[in-house]
Design a binder for these strands. Structure first.
Length: 474
RNA sequence: GGUCCCUUCGUCUAUCGGUUAGGACACUAGAUUUUCAUUCUAGGAAGAGCGGUUCGACUCCGCUAGGGACUGCCA
């Protein structure tokens, strides 16, 4: 019960994703919590790639993980390590376990093991290989074997979890786990325990699906006489329907969140609120999150991903983001959509963004809302606008253009006033010619209020579009 | 099947034995309005069930129900 604990050592946390092709959003949340806790305590945050499964390994997948973490702004305090590269260390630990009598060679075939499992299950306990108390004889020769951990039959293994409190697992229900495969490669639980210890990890903060692995890993720690880290198992992230996150829930990887047009700071803020909270705080800075983040405030129940709320938070960060940054990001999306911009259009885009950002929940929205400034003159008017451009309205637009011609301050506020006074002088409401003017300026694409549309387009382009329309319809 | 975890508005959460159970997103209604949007105002919306403990339970305990994870020579 009185295991040495690393709670009083300097904090070292880690994120240990396996390179399966992308960084899952659940892993991203785990990474964020580890990062927040390390920053909060002035400790270190490390990255370890769990690539012991060579069959599934790919360099590209590893790179995706680095890119994703980098995009999220979760930079590690040391170079990432590869678990595969540390196989010698793992094997050394197994040697020692073997010597200490905590592990044994098991010569059961897969079929035999399956049978033994079924029997053990029927008897009400987990697998115990007959080889745990047998020594290989001549009959075994160079028969293949795995090395298994000798789990005690009695007692229980207790995790004192920083989030869940005391959780006890009966040892009889923990199987004699494989440490080394027949090909001599280390398995997950062994590698994790050995690496966490070797890397000096003091806080293991990860998803709840690893809670029972915690018991298995503690068994190894104890057998080796190592100081235990503090465990903190985070509530699972589930889809909108409460089921485990999967493809059908939509954007599930960091890459997909990027493509969907979310800002990293918004994703950080949103993810922080999934399974953790600080009073009523909803929108907060990284500095605040770091200052506030305590493991005791981590929630215990699973959290559902709510993209609608993420959209709201993203909208907030779009509102406060620097215009040049948003402009560059939005320009890139337009380019991806096949719309290149010349210098004048780039300037128009930069002018448009502050005027439309309030309605944008994602960068994709921002691209949609600014598409009108990128239209190349002359463009064909949509039918609705054509219909609105009757003789009376055309005359009015002509007079409006004249009126605007003397306006020197080409920004939304004064332009709005001109529009108002012009409507009054014409003795009509803005509703009389507003929709037509909107169509003329936007070409049917979404656009902000007319004064803002004028400002975004710029003086020359605005007059050009009106002139185009008036010459197009006669 | 076994082990373990979880259960407050639709969702994320606050509450840490005494509150009209708070906030945010979403939703509804109204106002504003040159589209969409924005903005403003108002509103509805929750302690899974049953037993305890207690002067008093969302809060502590137990049981039931429901959901989930694990139970690999995957991680």
């Amino acid at each position: 019960m009185s295991d040495p604990s690393s709670a009083d050592r300097p904090v070292v946390t880690r994120i240990a994703p396996s390179p399966t092709g992308s960084l899952h959003i659940g892993n991203a949340r785990s990474a964020l919590f580890n990062w927040l806790y390390a920053r909060h305590t002035g400790g270190k945050f490390l990255i370890r790639i769990e690539d012991t499964d060579r069959a599934r390994h790919s360099e590209a997948a590893v790179q995706v993980i680095f890119d994703s973490l980098s995009w999220l702004g979760l930079s590690p305090d040391a170079d990432p390590v590869s678990q595969f590269a540390r196989a010698d260390l793992h094997r050394g630990v197994v040697e020692e376990l073997l010597e200490r009598g905590w592990a044994y060679r098991c010569y059961m075939t897969t079929e035999e093991a399956d049978q033994a499992k079924a029997i053990a299950r029927a008897e009400g306990h987990a697998l115990r290989s007959p080889w745990r108390d047998r020594v290989a004889g001549p009959a075994q020769g160079n028969q293949p074997f795995v090395v298994r951990f000798k789990v005690p039959n009695e007692g229980e293994t207790v995790i004192n979890d920083a989030v869940r409190g005391v959780v006890a697992f009966p040892n009889k229900d923990l199987e004699d786990l494989v440490l080394l495969r027949t090909d001599g490669t280390p398995t997950y639980n062994l590698a994790v325990a050995a690496d966490d210890h070797d890397m000096g990890i003091t806080y293991v903060i990860r998803g709840e699906e690893h809670l029972s692995n915690g018991a298995r890993q503690i068994l190894i720690y104890r057998a080796m006489g190592w100081e235990l880290p503090v465990y903190a198992h985070l509530p699972l992230l589930v889809g909108a329907d409460g089921a485990k996150l999967s493809k059908r829930h939509g954007a599930m990887t960091v890459g997909e969140f990027i493509a969907a047009g979310y800002l990293p700071e918004a994703v950080r803020n949103y993810l922080a609120r999934l399974g953790w909270g600080h009073g009523d705080a909803e929108i907060f800075s990284d500095a605040q999150a770091i200052e506030w983040f305590e493991l005791k405030d981590v929630v215990r129940s699973p959290a559902r991903l709510d993209l609608v709320k993420l959209g709201h938070i993203n909208n907030h960060y779009i509102r406060v983001a620097d215009t040049p940054r948003l402009t560059a990001l939005t320009a890139q999306i337009h380019i991806e959509r096949g719309i290149r911009q010349d210098e004048a259009q780039g300037a128009a885009l930069a002018r448009a963004i502050p005027l439309v950002r309030e309605g944008a929940k994602t960068l994709l929205d921002l691209a949609d809302l600014t598409a009108f400034v990128l239209k190349k003159r002359p463009f064909a008017l949509d039918e609705k606008t054509l219909k609105l451009l009757d003789a009376e309205t055309r005359g009015r637009l002509g007079r409006l253009a004249e009126r605007l011609g003397v306006e020197t301050d080409w920004t939304a506020a004064p332009l709005g006033k001109v529009l108002q006074t012009f409507a009054e002088s014409e003795g009509v409401g803005l509703g009389k010619f507003g929709p037509a003017l909107r169509g003329v300026l936007s070409g049917g694409a979404p656009a902000p209020d007319l004064a803002s549309a004028f400002e975004a387009l710029g003086r020359e382009e605005s007059f050009g579009r009106i002139a185009d329309a008036l010459s197009q319809v006669r």
